[in-house]
Amino acid sequence: MQFESLLKQVDFIKEIDKVKYIQRKTKLFNSERNENDAEHSWHLAIMAFVLAEHSNEKIDLLKVIKMLLIHDIVEIDAGDTFIYDTLKNHKNTEEESKASKRIFGILPKNQAEELIQIWEEFEKGETIDAKFAKSMDRFEPLLQNTSNNGGTWKEFNIDYEKVYKKKKEIDKGSNLIWDYAENLLNESVEKGILTKRN
Rank of each mutant, 00 (worst) to 15 (best):
S100K: 02
S100A: 15
S100I: 01
S100D: 03
K101Q: 03
K101P: 01
K101S: 03
R102I: 00
R102F: 00
R102Q: 03
R102K: 14
I103E: 00
I103W: 00
I103Y: 00
F104T: 01
I106Q: 02
I106V: 13
I106L: 07
I106K: 02
L107S: 13
L107Q: 14
L107C: 11
L107A: 12
P108D: 10
P108Y: 05
P108V: 08
P108K: 04
P108E: 11
P108G: 07
K109W: 01
N110A: 07
N110G: 03
N110I: 06
N110T: 11
Q111Y: 13
A112G: 15
E113K: 15
E114R: 10
E114V: 05
E114I: 06
E114A: 09
L115W: 04
L115V: 01
L115Y: 14
L115M: 07
L115T: 02
I116E: 08
Q117S: 15
Q117M: 10
Q117P: 01
I118A: 05
I118K: 07
I118L: 13
W119Y: 14
W119M: 05
W119G: 08
W119A: 05
E120C: 07
E120L: 13
E121A: 12
E121V: 12
E121I: 12
E121H: 09
E121Q: 11
F122L: 05
F122A: 04
F122M: 11
F122H: 15
F122N: 12
F122E: 06
F122P: 15
F122S: 07
E123G: 14
E123Q: 15
E123A: 15
E123C: 13
K124A: 14
K124Y: 09
G125C: 04
G125A: 04
G125N: 10
G125Y: 07
E126D: 12
E126G: 02
E126Q: 15
T127C: 08
T127W: 07
T127Q: 10
I128F: 12
D129Y: 09
D129Q: 13
D129G: 14
A130I: 10
A130Y: 11
K131H: 08
K131T: 09
K131E: 09
K131I: 10
F132E: 07
F132C: 09
A133R: 08
A133Q: 09
A133L: 14
A133D: 11
K134T: 15
K134P: 04
K134L: 15
S135N: 06
S135Y: 04
M136K: 03
M136V: 11
M136A: 07
M136S: 03
D137A: 15
R138H: 12
R138V: 13
R138M: 14
R138G: 06
R138S: 09
R138Y: 14
F139V: 02
F139K: 05
F139E: 01
F139Y: 15
F139A: 10
F139I: 04
E140W: 06
E140M: 09
E140P: 02
P141V: 00
P141M: 00
P141Q: 02
